[in-house]
Design a protein around this nucleic acid. Structure first.
Lengths: 151, 151
DNA sequence: GTTTTTGCAAATGATTTGCATGGAT
DNA sequence: ATCCATGCAAATCATTTGCAAAAAC
């Protein structure tokens, strides 16, 4: 993969912050950029390992924290307490299944300004507003129906 | 504390489900009802211990799961992965500080029907939509300014 | 050459599980 | 008498931390 202009930006941002440009950081950023979807730290570790053999999980975590600070990644915490890292930075939200933990994107545009204003009223300097819809996914509903029928 | 009509409802719901009415369950339900605010499992355990000495943390967890199933409690997962259990069932949302984990209520009324419809389109049977605003709380902002000034 | 980052191994901390006892029906 | 719920202790699992070696500046 050839370096992209996004790489250039990433590198100069790192240098401006007095931080180092490393193959691990570039690889994680590249994987996220290609992924356009949320993934756990462990999933990302698997994907990045193909490019940087031997990369460690703690490095993945620390780089994700860095990218979150830079606003390149959003974090969604699912019900099991596992964090998902989302490379989609355009407005979208999430639905989480309370039975199996499935997380899917939902496209909706609530009035963000109203939500952010409410947070400011509470003394916050808001970064973003994420809607998390909790419910039961299609697959789990099928399972539950089967269980009910059997009982 | 005298039994309330809410207790009556809770008891009959449990019986209808073939489950037992226990002092632990009644105490946890009562504490949550009086609390009108979110709390961690551990905080609730502390509060309930005053009424039911010796109650165990696993019991608190399992009862919270039960109450969540009944729709009496909502779960909010903060950034550290710690779950907060919220007894407020009226519409309100949350702002979470990404520095210290503080969670505050925010009052705002996004178009819920639009959000829930979007989830249905994704195959979900939605329970509710929670907005989680991520940002930095007032206290942490003060700290950060102090750090920046010092640097 | 100096400072940051990495990888490893171990620690942490919330939550869950297995199992025997006690309690509700 | 039956079956569910509890308490205890141990297990689990994502994430974080301490530290020495390696890499970036």
């Amino acid at each position: 993969m050839a370096p992209t202009s996004t790489d250039e930006l990433f590198c100069s941002t790192l240098r401006a912050r007095g931080q180092r440009v490393t193959p691990q950081r570039l690889a994680i950023a590249a994987v996220l950029r290609d992924l356009h979807h949320h993934a756990t730290a462990e999933e990302l570790h698997g994907l990045v390992s193909a490019r940087v053999p031997g990369i460690s999980l703690p490095t993945v975590y620390s780089t994700l924290e860095l990218l979150e600070d830079l606003g390149a990644v959003r974090r969604v915490v699912n019900d099991g307490g596992t964090a998902l890292f989302d490379a989609r930075t355009d407005e979208h939200h999430h639905a989480i299944c309370r039975r199996c933990g499935l997380v899917v994107d939902i496209e909706a545009t609530p009035d963000q300004s109203q939500l952010l204003d409410a947070a400011r009223t509470a003394g916050f300097a808001p970064d973003d507003a994420q809607v998390v819809v909790r419910g039961v996914c299609a697959a789990c509903r099928t399972v539950r129906e089967a269980e009910t029928a059997a009982a």
